[in-house]
């Protein structure tokens, strides 16, 4: 790790610690001020006024999984583009064309998923 990067990491670490402390310290201190009268009924989950009948931790809609899969493909693509994009400004037409071909190839993945019906919310 370069020294500059290490310096940034320590700065962000300090920033993050401050960020965690500022909401947490009032939360801990307010414990002594706010009322605390729990009862069995109050601690039930909210279900529009009736007793909860179905547990929320159950299998859920399959469509979420499809979208998550397509997401991973494109997220990896964007990370790769981030590595390339800052140097494209001074690149030649040939290099630009190569980057363009990469984008077109990945777009093909989108149209494959589209044709297979993975992008339909049903």
């Amino acid at each position: 790790m370069s020294e500059e990067l290490l310096a940034d990491v320590f700065f962000l670490l300090g920033f993050g610690v401050a960020g965690l402390m500022l909401p947490m310290v009032p939360l801990l201190l307010l414990r002594y001020i706010r009322p605390q009268h729990p009862s069995a009924v109050k601690l039930q989950p909210y279900e529009s006024g009736v007793v909860q009948t179905t547990a929320p931790r159950r299998p859920f809609h399959m469509a979420y999984y499809n979208f998550a899969l397509v997401f991973i493909v494109f997220e990896v693509e964007t990370v790769l583009l981030f590595a390339v994009s800052p140097v494209l400004r001074d690149a030649s037409w040939m290099d630009l064309l190569k980057a363009g071909i990469f984008v077109v190839l990945v777009s093909d993945g989108l149209f494959y998923a589209w044709r297979k019906g993975a992008l339909v919310w049903k």
Partner: peptide, 30 residues
């Protein structure tokens, strides 16, 4: 974590929306 049907659905929807819009947004910034 809330163990509530509404919250559970809300959390799922939030994350689905989050990841869906993340990609066009990142590509626009690229």
């Amino acid at each position: 974590a809330s163990y509530d049907n509404y919250s559970f659905l809300g959390g799922l929807r939030a994350s689905a929306q989050f990841i869906s819009y993340e990609i066009p947004r990142t590509l626009a910034v690229v």
